[in-house]
Amino acid sequence: MSAPLLAIEGLTKRFGGLTAVKELTMHVEAGSISSLIGPNGAGKSTVFNVITGIYVPTAGDIKLGGASIVGRKPHQVAAAGIMRTFQNIRLFAFMTVLENVMVGEQTRMHATPLDSALRTPRAQREERAVSERALELLDFVGLSAQSEQWARNLPYGMQRRLEIARALAPNPRVLLLDEPAAGANPVEKRELMALVRAIRDRGVTVVLIEHDMKLVMGISDRVTVLDYGEKISEGDPQSVRRDPRVIEAYLGKGA
């Protein structure tokens, strides 16, 4: 087996006396779809927040393509190729849909403030290329008709897809999706599954946190289950589904 693209090794995160994540090891293969599941408060979002640099881990290491990214700031993690969405959608409300995606392309751009102020040919060329790419991504998630609207005016489902397009903008190596199906109806969930597969087919490795088991079992190559910050099970969807510890964590001890 080749080296994993994203390797979480013995990750521990403590907040004072509370251990949110305890000695988690998780390997994500390039080109795969992995899921992180677990009951509420299991520490899933904390894992994402540590990966993306909001929190510094108490112990352990996170490697992207073999290089440690621990200690990097969120914008440096983004530049390294890890982009994310948020559990509670965080778009730039008073910017257009297109501008939202273009913000995502920051790390690919080279225009200096002087270039931009003077609109040098170089800056104009880059600006054109970036907006074309953003439009292509909007088309990919099915929002090309809304490109000039304010992000806040989009209905909920479209806001979720816009957040995904924005995260895809710099062509990341890894995309972290934090509960992308929250609040979605069955039709939207099916569309989302197709979208996640299409993202994987573009060469982006996907890690998702999700509560909807049908969705998780339907698209994941590998599932990791957290409970109280500890990994209690890991494997392909079928084996995880049958794991007694997983059933116990979700349903409580059988009577």
Partner: peptide
């Protein structure tokens, strides 16, 4: 100059910080 800046990489970064600083940093700002 300001009109050019507003619709540029830096202008969008400013507005993103204004709208949601945390999300902006995660987008590479």
């Amino acid at each position: 100059l300001l009109n050019n800046l507003r619709r540029s990489r830096l202008g969008r970064a400013w507005m993103a910080i204004r709208e949601d600083e945390l999300a902006a940093t995660h987008m590479g700002v």
